[in-house]
Amino acid sequence: MTAISAHSVRRSLPALSGQTGYILLLFGVTALLMPLSRFVSPSLGSWSTVSAILVISSMLVLVGFGQGLVILVGELDLSIASVIALTGVLTTAWLGESPSLVTFLEILAIAVLIGVLNGIGVTVLKVPSFIMTLGSQLIVAGIALGYTKGTVPGTTPRFLGDLMLGKVLGVPTPILLLIGIAVVGFVIQRYTVFGRRLYAVGGNRATAAIAGVHVNRMIVGAFAVSSLCAALTGMLLVGYGGGATLGMGDGYFLPSIAVVVVGGSSILGGRGNYLGTVAATIFLQTISTLIQALGISQGWQTFIYGCLIIAVVGLLKRDLATKAGRLLTRPGKS
């Protein structure tokens, strides 16, 4: 590692520690919401509430990880909803009929290919990622619709149903999955060479390139991982929902970006911590459970949810981000 790359990595690390407080705060607010929620409904705040929220969160944290890496390098992946739907369809159609490891890997390979093409479009063809992934989102949705002609064939592979509906030592397996994803995701993003180079690319591409990082390769890699995560989410959703629908990914597109941003990552790249995304996922799912329990109309539920997202990002984060920013700039600016 050259001196410059060591500098660039060091430069991104204070940002991480500056965010720890925010992440702890997010977890803390979520934990506080649980007992407070009893004012909304006396049954809220129980273990079954926590369990339900964590089960629902287990899929969003996975999409959020992939989206988070893409956002970390300063791009966005709008194709995940279609990738979720396509892999869901292929999971019931191919894997449901004859489960095999080869088929499983084939489906994941298709998803990775979509991600790689997204990345090549962004890096080589210089198409802005908004446009590139919007285009591929339409293409992938078209393939899924054309392939199924509207009716999704096949059945749910048994192992996926068992995975998403099962329990280990009384704990629903999706919750264990969530913990596993959080740990693995945090380690990959924070401690692997791949993860650190993504920070470097997101922080400053020119500096990263001078430091010997293959910037384009890293960006393609981020998109590939994002698609892979979306594909795995599609599979989990098939197990969770007992089947695939063409619209099954629709509810994950905007939330995947929301959890990353509410989790404290910069939408412009270079800054973020996966545990923030995990905290934001659980926080937002808790909020939406609470809002639903208020028993108000759908219009008001959506309205309040939207206001809360803006409030959190706008108010809660600004203060902390400023402090984090001071931490960041003090040693760096010379």
Binding site: S41, V55, I56, Y240, G241, T289, Q292, A293, Q298
Partner: peptide
């Protein structure tokens, strides 16, 4: 709650409602 006539959204919303009203 409104689940847009979708089975997966219905499952998620019902789980949330069950948390508040077991």
């Amino acid at each position: 709650y409104w689940s847009n006539w979708d089975a997966v959204q219905s499952k998620t919303n019902t789980l949330k409602a069950l948390a508040a009203n077991p």
